[in-house]
């Protein structure tokens, strides 16, 4: 198949999808939510680790009695 025949169609395809315009706030909003999500994930992981750590301290703080 001669792919070159599809070149003008690809150009047209791009023009059509350039019409689906994003303004400044749309673009900026694309950058923000995932940042917050990452922060949330990090805080969640810290909290989980702190819980595990405190559990280990509580159970193992008696030390080893021989």
């Amino acid at each position: 198949m001669n792919l070159d025949k599809l070149k003008p169609t690809w150009e047209q395809f791009k023009v059509i999808h350039a019409m689906d315009e994003m303004d400044e706030s749309d673009i900026l909003s694309c950058l923000e939510p995932k940042k917050q999500e990452t922060h949330f994930r990090i805080s969640k992981r810290i909290a989980q680790n702190a819980l595990v750590f405190s559990f280990l301290i509580m159970t193992l703080s008696g030390g080893c009695s021989i």
Binding site: K14, H17, A18, D20, M22, I27
Partner: peptide, 17 residues
């Protein structure tokens, strides 16, 4: 951010396609 936004706006046909 401003220059990024304008770069995206100029090339959104590519990103969207």
């Amino acid at each position: 951010k401003k220059s990024f936004v304008s770069l995206i706006q100029q090339n959104q046909g590519i990103v969207n396609s």
